[in-house]
Computed example of a mutant assay.
Amino acid sequence: MLRVTHFERMVFPMVVLGLILLIIGLVASIPILTTIGAILLVVGLILNLVPLGGSRRRVY
């Protein structure tokens, strides 16, 4: 059974928030929102793709 940790539950909303801020920043031409949105989006995607703390899958 796979357990979802608190850290893993926080990564997906980070990607969504980054995407929303990026879109709002581009539409309203507010550079600080675009920058923060891009940073959150990139960090969220990296944290989704890179397994931190090693792999939880163990074969006995």
Rank of each mutant, 00 (worst) to 15 (best):
M1Y: 05
M1L: 10
L2T: 07
R3S: 12
R3Q: 09
V4S: 08
V4G: 03
V4T: 11
T5H: 10
T5Y: 13
T5Q: 09
H6I: 08
F7I: 04
F7K: 02
E8P: 00
E8G: 01
E8C: 02
E8T: 09
R9M: 10
R9W: 10
M10T: 10
M10H: 07
M10G: 02
V11T: 05
V11Y: 11
V11N: 11
F12K: 06
L17D: 04
L17P: 01
G18A: 07
I20L: 08
L21H: 01
L22F: 08
L22Y: 02
I23L: 10
I23D: 00
I23H: 02
I24Q: 08
G25W: 00
L26D: 02
V27P: 00
S29L: 12
S29E: 08
S29R: 07
I32S: 14
I32T: 06
L33K: 04
L33T: 02
L33M: 13
L33R: 04
L33A: 14
T34K: 12
T34Y: 00
T34C: 12
T34N: 13
T35S: 15
T35V: 15
T35D: 14
I36A: 15
G37C: 09
G37K: 05
A38Y: 00
A38Q: 11
A38F: 01
A38G: 15
A38P: 05
I39H: 13
I39G: 15
L40V: 00
L41M: 14
V42L: 15
V42N: 05
V42M: 15
V43C: 14
G44L: 14
G44Q: 12
G44I: 06
G44A: 11
L45N: 07
L45A: 08
L45R: 03
I46H: 11
L47W: 09
N48T: 14
L49F: 11
L49I: 12
L49C: 09
V50A: 09
V50E: 04
V50F: 12
V50D: 03
P51N: 06
P51G: 02
P51W: 04
P51S: 08
L52W: 11
L52Y: 11
G53L: 10
G53D: 07
G53I: 10
S55R: 12
S55G: 12
R56L: 05
R56C: 03
R56T: 12
R57Q: 08
R57S: 10
R57C: 02
R58M: 07
V59M: 11
Y60K: 14
Y60N: 13
